[in-house]
Design a protein around this nucleic acid. Structure first.
Length: 463
RNA sequence: GACCCUUUCAUCUAGUGGCCAAGGAUAUUGCGUUUUCAUCGCAAAAACAAAGGUUCAAAUCCUUUAGGGGUCGCCA
């Protein structure tokens, strides 16, 4: 049985890097028909916020990832942690340390100046005397003092860290609140995790957590440390790099399936395959194919994927998404035609919404460059004649081919090139020189609106 | 500074000693399709960080150097 988890701390929005590790964990659990659990790391009372937690849950919901059972809150488990602190104290595997913060920082400065990695020197490890007055002690765990701490990372291979690099770290603060590395190890063990997939910024926490596992006699899970996502310049992703909040991608018009496909290919691959449906990801994901090195975030690829998913999405479903972007077309009688005519022209739902609005609303502005080019010479007469032909047309006018026939007949009768009517008509209908096919546009808006738009232009240009 | 991780086209990546004078994808450029734009199709350009080894044979193994990242909290 594979059990994985995502363990965010509710101090901000869900970051795309966090979403990727969550995705990897989720996929691995799903693939093995195991469980994916959610744990909220809120042991730091002062930094938590309800809004942050809500934002994280909302982002999970948006991408369609769900977790098994109830979310676990560490803040509600303090009694459990306290019990284990007691146990370790009793067994002599942990001890009270009365070092003041001033003493600690002096020690660090000394070590730093000697060019050493800073760490606690163990001065209270075997302390038997009378504790100093006025100091509320912290609890430290006894870490091994010699040898190496070795574990086999599922991504990076064997990791070997000298025991001297791991100090007797604090497991309970003055006041008794337990610390991160202590509670993570306990919860991961108690929640029955088989596989811990996390960012490689946690690599150095692993030996510390192993000390806790060892002291408490817990079974070690498999660890996988996934390298970071950097910005396009290869530097650490920061707010200045644009969207790092998952929900921002929704606002920008990205489909969740595109974002997940993008993220799953950042640091993971399955041969040459680029497009993965959610089901395929679940079927094919395996942490053994996770890359060792960090990867750069690349907006072009995400955009391409998003365009791909828009193009291939059934129109009904697309219409549902579009509602979130202020476009109500579900009830439109030409829905299929409208979306088929526009969805290849929008890389994001925002762009697609604009394309649709361009067709659905009578233009109020006409692109200056386009109209200068299109509305010259005989253009108004040609448009006027075209109106006449539309109004006297005696065959049905509903589909694009039917409109196409009108235009064909028109250019044949007039003995003019397609461009003579095409350019002015396009600018007339859309206000711009580029966009969907004329036949489609007319079929969508109908004869009446077509005529209306042409007459509006003629009126503007004959005053 | 110390410790740990990492290094294939601009970017994401395939590649586990011979199938590699390195493959795919995005972006770029060109051509074609399209009355426009977009889509689509075809083509081009583009990389094994460097130096030493090991081997009949190295992108793949080893060493060193250089670059990038992470960690060194009574934060998580």
């Amino acid at each position: 049985m594979i059990t994985t988890r995502f363990a965010p701390s509710p101090t901000g929005y869900l970051h795309i890097g966090g979403l990727r590790t969550a995705l990897f964990s989720w996929l691995w659990a799903k693939k093995n028909e195991g469980e994916f659990l959610l744990r909220i790391e809120d042991t730091d009372l002062s930094r938590n916020s309800d809004e942050a937690l809500e934002a994280i849950l909302k982002a999970f919901d948006w991408v369609g990832m769900s977790y098994n059972g109830e979310a676990i809150y560490q803040s509600k488990r303090f009694d459990i942690y306290a019990k284990y602190v007691e146990q370790l104290l009793k067994e002599g595997k942990a001890y009270r340390c009365y070092m003041s913060k001033e003493e600690l920082s002096t020690l660090r400065e000394e070590q730093m100046s000697k060019g050493e990695r800073t760490r606690y020197d163990g001065r209270y490890r075997n302390f038997k005397g009378t504790p100093p007055e006025g100091i509320e002690p912290v609890i430290r765990i006894k870490a091994p003092t010699e040898g190496n701490i070795i574990f086999n990372d599922g991504v990076k291979g064997e990791i070997c860290i000298a025991a001297t690099e791991v100090d007797d770290f604090v497991i309970a603060r003055a006041g008794g609140v337990p610390t991160y590395n202590f509670v993570v190890a306990i919860d991961d063990a108690l929640m029955g995790l088989s596989d811990v997939i996390r960012g490689d910024d946690h690599l150095y926490n692993t030996p510390k957590q192993m000390v806790v596992y060892e002291a408490l006699g817990f079974k070690l899970p498999n660890f996988y440390h996934v390298a970071m996502i950097n910005n396009e310049q290869g530097k650490k992703l920061s707010k200045r790099d644009g969207a790092t909040d998952v929900m921002e991608y929704k606002a920008l018009g990205y489909l969740p399936e595109a974002l997940l496909n993008f993220l799953v290919r950042l640091g993971w691959s399955h041969g040459d395959q680029e497009i993965f449906s959610i089901d395929e990801m679940i079927e094919l994901f395996d942490p053994k194919n996770i890359n060792k090195s960090s990867s750069n975030y690349n907006l072009d690829k995400l955009l391409w994927l998003n365009a791909h998913y828009i193009k291939n999405m059934p129109n009904e479903k697309l219409a549902l998404h579009l509602k979130e972007y202020g476009v109500e077309v579900e009830e439109h009688d030409k829905l299929e035609l409208l979306l088929d005519a526009t969805k290849e022209r929008g890389k994001t739902l925002v762009e697609l919404a604009n394309q649709i609005n361009l067709i659905l609303t009578t233009p109020t502005e006409y692109d200056a460059k386009a109209s200068k080019k299109a509305f010259k010479g005989e253009a108004m007469n040609i448009l006027s004649d075209f109106v006449t032909m539309l109004q006297t047309w005696d065959k049905p006018l509903h589909t694009p081919p039917e409109y196409h026939e009108v235009i064909e007949k028109f250019v044949a009768d007039k003995e003019i090139g397609f461009g003579k009517i095409g350019q002015p008509l396009r600018v007339t209908l859309l206000g711009s020189m580029t966009g969907s096919g004329l036949d489609e546009i007319m079929a969508i808006i109908g004869v009446e609106e077509t005529v209306h738009r042409i007459e509006k232009v003629i009126k503007l240009h004959t005053l």
